[in-house]
């Protein structure tokens, strides 16, 4: 059975100007011990999905429809106290706003200890402190930094601290939202290696959210591609990167900068991003798509298995698959 299953999830933000359709009819499943990568355009709904799972959306956000099953329970049915049991102990998150997660008034060490003690009330504070030192070693932060305040951390140091915080209570699922944007390549590979080892040892699941395709290739077993609130492609990482089926995925991959000598310019996907206040009725990518036809303009394509794939796992939402 899947550990996490999103069924037909639609999410709106009600703003002064109107309704933003941030996530549209999204279905996705994740097994225990699996790693999933979510990639896609900036503003396509990746963080919104994560916040919906943890039920950390602002009051003016509305889950229009759908269910979020975690370990057999629909999280959308839980009361707030029940949800607090789930957060951090079962599902932890590395927020994209790494820096905002930390309170500027307290030392970082005190905050991690506090988190552990809140969620593991039976633990002694001495044991909690020992655990924090362990966590810091795990993410490669010197323990001297425990006594320092957030503003004394560099960007990458804060991100590491947030990864430590997410690991604090041994969760079953970690959602890591752009966890390594401030880390250099060496450290990124190592920190991700650490997370991956923990995932494999403990059978933990991880959802990585990132725009970094090369990083996804390293850590994600499966990848979901988001465009303007819609999951447009999903499949095993190797297949999807080698032979993308959706024109948006192909465009995104073509735009990845490479170290190859013959590449001298960055590619862009032509056209403008979707206005989520008034998304196109048909395929949301159609105004920018070179393969678009009248059908694309009128009917939204469903997410269906690609014909040429072997196991039916590789799916895409497009009338004219590549």
């Amino acid at each position: 059975m899947a550990l996490l299953e999103l069924q037909d999830l639609s999410l709106h933000y009600h703003t002064g100007r109107g309704v933003i359709s941030a996530v549209n009819q999204l279905s996705l499943a994740l097994d225990a011990g699996e790693s999933l990568g979510l990639v896609g355009e900036s503003g396509s709904g990746k963080s919104s999905i994560a916040h919906a799972i943890l039920r950390l959306l602002p009051a003016y956000a509305q889950i229009r429809q759908g269910r979020i099953y975690f370990a057999g329970r629909n999280l959308l049915d839980l009361t707030e106290p029940q949800m607090r049991e789930v957060r951090w102990r079962q599902i932890a998150m590395v927020f994209q706003a790494a820096m905002n997660t930390l309170n500027p008034m307290y030392t970082v060490g005190a905050q991690v200890v506090e988190t552990i003690l809140t969620h593991e009330p039976n633990m002694s504070s001495k044991a909690a402190r020992a655990r924090v030192e362990e966590l810091y070693a795990l993410v490669g932060l010197p323990c001297t930094l425990l006594r320092r305040y957030p503003h004394e951390y560099s960007g990458g140091m804060k991100q590491r601290a947030c990864i430590a915080l997410a690991l604090a209570c041994n969760p079953q699922l970690i959602i890591a939202d752009e966890p390594t944007t401030a880390l250099d390549v060496i450290m990124q590979a190592r920190i991700l290696g650490e997370l991956e080892s923990i995932r494999k040892e403990r059978g933990m699941s991880v959802i990585y959210i990132s725009h970094d395709m090369a990083m996804m290739a390293q850590v994600a077993e499966r990848i979901g591609v988001m465009y303007a609130g819609v999951l447009v492609e999903y499949g095993c990482t190797i297949d999807l990167l080698a032979a993308p089926a959706h024109p948006y995925t192909a465009g995104l991959l073509a735009a990845v900068p490479s170290m190859a000598d013959d590449v001298t310019q960055l590619q862009e996907i032509p056209g403008e991003p979707v206005d989520l206040y008034a998304p196109p009725a048909g395929c949301r990518f159609y105004p920018r798509c070179s393969r678009a036809t009248a059908q694309c303009k009128e009917q939204a394509p469903p997410l269906l298995p690609c014909r040429r794939n072997r196991d039916g796992e590789h799916k895409a939402a497009c009338w004219h698959l590549l």
């Binding site: 390549v185 990124q188 590979a189 080892s197 990083m215 290739a217």
Partner: peptide, 13 residues
Amino acid sequence: VPKLGRQLPVSRL
């Protein structure tokens, strides 16, 4: 530097 299309081994810290 990681490269697309080639799964680089991620090593432990």
